[in-house]
């Protein structure tokens, strides 16, 4: 560990406040896309999975780590693509609005 435990805890607490703050004014129609987008962001566990796969020294560890890499990749790409598709639907709806006038 490069940083001390307390440093990491500080980061945790500050990030929690930022997390609450940034979504506090979300409109109802965006609840689902926002949840889906946040879902994609926690796919960042992929970074952790790659780290441990890169330093695994037993077969068991490598196997577990690679399973984590696979699952995390599905989480990341699937999450972002699904969110984009949802939002595309909103955009085409908004464009239809402009087109009709």
């Amino acid at each position: 560990m490069t940083s001390s435990g307390v440093d990491l805890l500080t980061i945790f607490v500050l990030a929690a406040f930022v997390g609450f703050e940034v979504v506090s004014k979300v409109s109802t129609i965006l609840h689902t896309p926002l949840m889906s987008g946040a879902n994609a962001i926690h796919g960042v566990i992929l970074v952790g999975a790659i780290l441990i796969a890169g330093r695994a020294d037993s077969g068991l560890q490598l196997g577990l780590a690679l399973a984590a890499v696979l699952l995390a990749t599905v989480n990341v790409v699937g999450g972002f693509v699904v969110t984009d598709r949802m939002l595309e639907m909103f955009r085409s709806a908004a464009r239809g609005k402009g087109g009709d006038r």
């Binding site: 980061i11 990030a15 930022v18 997390g19 609450f20 940034v22 946040a38 962001i41 960042v44 970074v47």
Partner: peptide
């Protein structure tokens, strides 16, 4: 730290 920040953001939001 990145995992902590991103994970916490999602956890809080």
């Amino acid at each position: 730290t990145l995992l902590i920040v991103a994970g916490t953001l999602v956890g809080a939001s």
